[in-house]
Design a protein around this nucleic acid. Sequence first.
DNA 1: ACTGATTTGTGCGTATGTATC
DNA 2: TGATACATACGCACAAATCAG
Lengths: 264, 264
Amino acid sequence: MNTPYYARWMPKQRTKHDVFVTEGAALDRGAGITLWRQIEARLAREIGEGAYEPGAQLPTERDLALRFGVNRHTMRHALSALAERGMVRIEQGRGMFVQETVLDYLIGARTRFSEILITQNRRPGGRLLRVDDDRRDARVARELKLPASSPLVELETLGEADGRPISVTSHFFPKDRFAGLADYYRRTGSITRALQACGVNDYMRLFTRLAARLPSAEEALLLRQPRSRPVIVSEAVNVDGAGCPIEFGLARFASERVRMMIQG
Amino acid sequence: MNTPYYARWMPKQRTKHDVFVTEGAALDRGAGITLWRQIEARLAREIGEGAYEPGAQLPTERDLALRFGVNRHTMRHALSALAERGMVRIEQGRGMFVQETVLDYLIGARTRFSEILITQNRRPGGRLLRVDDDRRDARVARELKLPASSPLVELETLGEADGRPISVTSHFFPKDRFAGLADYYRRTGSITRALQACGVNDYMRLFTRLAARLPSAEEALLLRQPRSRPVIVSEAVNVDGAGCPIEFGLARFASERVRMMIQG
DNA sequence: ACTGATTTGTGCGTATGTATC
DNA sequence: TGATACATACGCACAAATCAG
């Protein structure tokens, strides 16, 4: 096998070691349509029908050329046409991958994970990774305008779009005001609703800071991405109607699946 | 030597291999101030005075302990205090590095490179890398709401803060409206002023899209950063007073030196 | 930091089909 | 019919990037 470590949990899919029956017979040679166009159309249909997962690695040029019974150059012609269409992404030395549709994550005063995904026609999801109900962190406390040693509640969540991981987020709340928040989150599966249960009907984003870096081993694992691809790190503070800070969020987004969008 | 390729042009600086003369005599033992505090203060001053370049690697704990004639534990105490202050960054297995001050690049409707730097007390700079007065690019044309094959003027610039490169930006303009723009830029050194010379007194940012990826070899070279550190890619459209798109900017920021800030 | 294996990228030479003048 | 130009297709070789050890 040659599966990258981050792809171990992905559903079984075709690999370069699979044996292909030559489909040269399925191509019309000398029928007025060039070979590379026929191959392009065939692969485009297969990808469209979901034969390969988004983000999955396609067989190598060599194997595809073998499968279709054509020269590698001919194969490359078909593949570069697919890449130009944006259906696949070709990376020298790595291979070819089915292009994933990137999510435009709209950042503004009313940034809400679920709402953003729904307006992008994606199915939001997520799960709770970890809870720490007596966390201390001087830097986070400062962001929340609390004394440095104030107790905090931390929820670490994984955000998903259409079942694919998008983000790992640590949510920090002042403990004295949101002691039971973890339980409410477990019950509702939503930060917004858990906050409502704690008496916060509405909240606004005060600011967002964005940076980029390579992920830790754990982050790469959770996001199911290679360690060589960066994550977008978002630090944000949410305040209640009175302008009092209620949440500090530290999110790490898979940079290959998400793009940040700022209007105005 | 063991200099990474991107650092070849950087000024010569101290490395962990330099030999230090013991400065134990310079510390006041039993004078009411702990040794680690004295060392902390000394190193903080040296860094502040620029003895080490931002981002440069500090000598090893062992060498520093030797220099000050103290135990490694004492040295570590001083260093962890510096790390907590944010002056140095300690990476297990790699070494210690002078923390670079990150620039908060404020994104909003009136985003201007020079103004952002000045409000952050940084000295803005830059130079023109390349001009193409008859550029065609279907994707850029679409962003500017022009026919796909419209001619464009492209200026590629390097943005600097305090003499350190922070961004490489391709600015695209509709050629029919901004034919002489390159010359104006050469004369004024500012996009804003070059646009004024072309009759655009004010412009606004319509949107900004942010993504992250690893840099190309050329981008890494220009930004003087390793290829293994990501760049933040910003795509933005500016419009004139009438709402007509006048510029598409494709900027690549050194993620170690810049952080994007969004308010509200 | 080096090595070998894997995979995509590029160049050159050749042959053939197809459209145009 | 012949000449020419161009895209298509094949074969071979090596360069460049990536990755695992």
